[in-house]
Simulated scan of single mutants.
Amino acid sequence: MGFEAKLKELGVTLPDAPAPAANYVPWVKVGDTVYVSGQISADENGLITGTLGADMDVQTGAAAAKRCAIALLAQVKAACDGDLDRLVKVVKLGGFVNSTADFTQQPMVINGASDFLVEALGDAGRHARSAVSSPSLPLGVAVEIDGVFQVK
């Protein structure tokens, strides 16, 4: 089963790849590697904002991270001329969590993206990762994730 078919089975439709919010490109392809700029937490209703440890719980933060992963896949699809099945491997994610100084569950928040990618892509979705705290993120979003992907 192809990746898009698996996403459809999971009830996930990739949106159009989000446009960059400033002076950068959404992705850069070098050889068989695609570097995707940070994707901020947003859904069909707009930005997902909040601060973990203050006004957002881990489960809601993990759902926001999943939305970042969906946006990452949309960017990879765009980098592959609309063919997500050219994706070979998720190599690495860099996860940033808008959180209070005493919040320590950043890995559980970023698991929302990691778990989704493994569910949707199988072994191709297993990746190296970082999950760090940030005192604020652009536009007040809860999560931002960038990624490195191998494609064919």
Rank of each mutant, 00 (worst) to 15 (best):
A124T: 11
G125P: 10
R129P: 01
L139C: 03
S130E: 04
A131I: 00
L121G: 04
G122S: 10
G125R: 09
V132T: 10
S134Y: 06
G147A: 10
G122D: 15
H127S: 10
L139F: 08
S133H: 12
V141P: 12
D123H: 01
V132Q: 14
L121F: 10
S136I: 11
S133N: 13
S133K: 14
E144C: 15
G125T: 04
S133D: 09
S134G: 10
L137H: 11
L121H: 08
A128Q: 03
R129L: 03
S133I: 00
S130Q: 07
A124H: 04
K152P: 06
L137C: 02
L137N: 13
H127Q: 06
V148A: 15
P138E: 15
S134L: 13
V151K: 01
G140S: 06
G140F: 11
V148K: 15
A142S: 15
S130L: 04
S134Q: 08
P138Q: 13
L121M: 13
V141M: 08
A131T: 06
H127G: 05
P138R: 13
V148N: 12
F149R: 15
P135D: 11
S130K: 08
A142V: 02
D146N: 14
G125S: 07
S133E: 02
F149Y: 14
F149L: 15
L139Y: 10
G122T: 02
A131L: 00
G140R: 01
R129I: 04
I145K: 00
A128N: 05
E144Q: 14
S136C: 09
A131F: 00
L137W: 10
L139P: 03
S133V: 00
S130A: 07
L139K: 14
R126M: 11
G147C: 12
D123Q: 06
V143H: 00
V148P: 10
I145C: 01
V141C: 09
D146I: 13
V132F: 10
K152H: 08
S130P: 02
K152Y: 08
G125F: 04
G125N: 03
S136H: 02
S134V: 06
L139Q: 14
S134D: 05
R129W: 09
D146H: 08
V151T: 14
D146P: 03
Q150S: 15
V148R: 13
H127L: 02
L137Q: 12
V141I: 02
A142N: 11
A120N: 03
